[in-house]
Amino acid sequence: MNIKKLLNPDWYELRARMGRRAVIGIPFIWLLVFFLIPFAIVLKISFAYTEIAIPPYSSLFDYADEALTIVLNLGNYLWLADDPLYISAYMGSVEIAFIGTVWCLLVGYPMAYAMAKAPKNWQSALLMAVLLPSWTSFLIRIYAWMGILRNNGLLNNLLMWLGVIDEPLVILNTNVAVYIGIVYAYLPFMVLPLYSNLVKMDKSLIEAAQDLGAKPFECFYKITLPLSMSGIIAGSMLVFIPAVGEVVIPQLLGGPETLMIGKILWQEFFNNRDWPVASALAIVMLLVLLIPIMIFNHSRQKDLEGRS
């Protein structure tokens, strides 16, 4: 037994309890102050009036003559609902993120499948090869496509040289470029959860199905695909949620037709300096993403705590 514990049980217990509290308390308070409370403040400011002041919004609470008045300005939300620009930006974001996610899945699933079936000593290196680009600067990777997709860029030069086209294709500053950017930037986030799901799969199930006469496609459709559903969900959420709020891709690769809410929020904040409207935009974006985020958190927490 611990000698200190025997000599002075109270002191030891107290210290253990204090230590436990500190380990819980420090990260807890940090996240509370710097992550949770900020969202409450965004909610608060979304109900404020825009003012030409520092900071550029009105105060919600006013205490004068022993009366507390709370002024909630719903105008920002009505403004969003009124202006078709914002509504189509939300629709556009969801649509672009959705199509981008489907493309990621179509490209990423076969990749993850091939990685999971590769020889064991190859797998670690292949995983590294897929993940390495996602560590490299996001901005730089999007920038690389600007040079390729331009009217006089590499792709058009190549296609004209091959004689496939006579006139350069306009790809940069269209939605096609945005899709390419999303697939390129988020592909590793799709492949990783799919791979870790597929690699754990029990191969004897497939063998059993084959023994019983199932064709390869039938095997895949009836066994592999349903069993990898949790990987598909995790990967799709990892792509869809950040893609809805994407700022850099629509600004660099997209054009005027690319209406995405992240870009609008950015402009509202930095160009118009309308903080309350930007806050209202962020709150509505959060509401749009609430269900996907909850699905993701649910699957993630199971993972984090080792339950399955």
Binding site: P27, F28, L31, L32, F34, F35, L36, I37, P38, F39, I41, V42, I45, P55, M237, L238, I241, P242, V244, G245, E246, V247, G262, L265, W266, F269, W275, A278, S279, A282, M285, L286, L289, P292, I293, F296, N297, R300, Q301, L304, E305
Partner: peptide, 30 residues
């Protein structure tokens, strides 16, 4: 507060950067 804590830990993994950035800025200003 365990559930709250693990939600706060996992949320930034997928939360769009614009929302985190705006929220943090408004908190610093407040």
């Amino acid at each position: 507060g365990r559930t709250l804590f693990s939600s706060m830990i996992t949320a930034p993994l997928v939360m769009p950067d614009v929302i985190i950035g705006l929220a943090m800025l408004l908190m610093f200003v407040s």
